[in-house]
Amino acid sequence: MKTYPAKPAEVEKKWIVIDAEGVVVGRLASFVANRLRGKHKPTYTPHIDCGDNVIIVNADKVVFSGRKYDDKRYYRHTGYPGGIKETSPKRILEGAHPERALELAVQRMVPRGPLGRKQLSNLHVYGGAEHPHEAQKPETVDFAALNRKNARTA
């Protein structure tokens, strides 16, 4: 069988829902980044947005493995001299927008550029259990059950 590059009109995009309660952030982010890019499909084409739409609920209940919850640091720079800022996952998850911890983890696993930004627009993260995408009839993926390391116990 000959391989061929997929055309944008031929791409079938599905909607999936993932419950992030008790799930390890890095493992979930890696899984979601691959789904957004479309690397799980046999028709994957690097220069086409052939990934699925991903909805993540209960993003405020994700966990970090080890001591990353307290010790990990995220850095950003304002662009001014001495303008480096830092924050921790603890501050983000206990703040006003806890879903940003997961959004940032996925964003850093998707390539930078116009295609990466387009693929990130297919990610929808919600802190609670509700989401407004019922009309798309999304499939539920039980990510915690795929591997015993995906969910953290105690």
Rank of each mutant, 00 (worst) to 15 (best):
Glu99Arg: 08
Asp60Asn: 14
Arg100Ala: 06
Val11Cys: 09
Glu130Met: 09
Lys137Pro: 02
Asn58Thr: 10
Ala145Cys: 02
Val25His: 02
Gly128Trp: 06
Gly79Tyr: 06
Val24Asn: 12
Lys85Gln: 15
Cys50Thr: 02
Gly38Cys: 06
Arg73Glu: 12
Pro138Lys: 06
Lys61Gly: 00
His97Pro: 00
Lys149Gln: 14
Ala29Gln: 04
Met109Gln: 11
Leu120Cys: 12
Gly127Cys: 10
Arg108Gly: 15
Ala101Val: 02
Ala135Thr: 10
His133Gln: 08
Pro132Asn: 07
Val23Lys: 10
Gly51Pro: 06
Ala129Phe: 06
Gly95Ser: 12
His124Glu: 00
Ala20Val: 11
Val141Asp: 09
Val110Cys: 04
Lys68Cys: 02
Glu103Met: 10
Thr45Cys: 01
Leu120Thr: 04
Val125Met: 07
Lys41Asn: 02
Lys39Ala: 00
Arg73Ser: 02
Ala105Ser: 15
Glu86Pro: 01
Leu120Lys: 05
Phe31Cys: 00
Asp49Ile: 00
Glu12Arg: 15
Lys85Tyr: 12
Asp49Gln: 06
Thr140Leu: 11
Thr78Val: 11
Leu146Ile: 09
Val57Gln: 08
Arg108Lys: 15
Lys7Ala: 08
Gly113His: 07
Gly116Glu: 13
Arg27Val: 07
Lys72Thr: 04
Asp60Pro: 03
Pro46Ser: 04
Pro138Gln: 06
Asn122Ile: 00
Phe64Thr: 14
Tyr44Glu: 06
Leu123Gln: 07
Val54Trp: 04
Lys61Thr: 07
His77Arg: 11
Asp19Gln: 11
Lys149Ile: 07
Gly79Thr: 08
Arg67Lys: 14
Ala151Ser: 13
Trp15His: 00
Tyr126Ala: 06
Asp70Cys: 01
Ala135Gly: 10
Ser88Leu: 04
Met1Leu: 12
Lys68Tyr: 01
Thr43Ser: 13
Lys13Cys: 01
Phe31Arg: 07
Ala6Glu: 04
Ile55Phe: 02
Asp70Ser: 10
Arg117Gly: 03
Leu123Glu: 03
Leu93Tyr: 09
Trp15Thr: 05
Phe31Val: 08
Thr153Met: 10
Gln136Thr: 11
Glu12Leu: 14
Leu102Pro: 08
Glu134Val: 12
Ala105Arg: 03
Ala29His: 07
Ala20Gln: 11
Thr78Lys: 07
Lys2Tyr: 09
Gly26Ala: 10
Glu12Asn: 11
Pro8Met: 11
Val125Arg: 01
Tyr4Lys: 14
Gly116Trp: 08
Ala151Asn: 05
Leu104Phe: 10
Asn34Thr: 07
Ala20Cys: 15
Ala6Ser: 15
Arg73Phe: 03
His97Tyr: 13
Val24Gly: 08
Gly127Ile: 03
Val125Thr: 06
Arg37Asp: 02
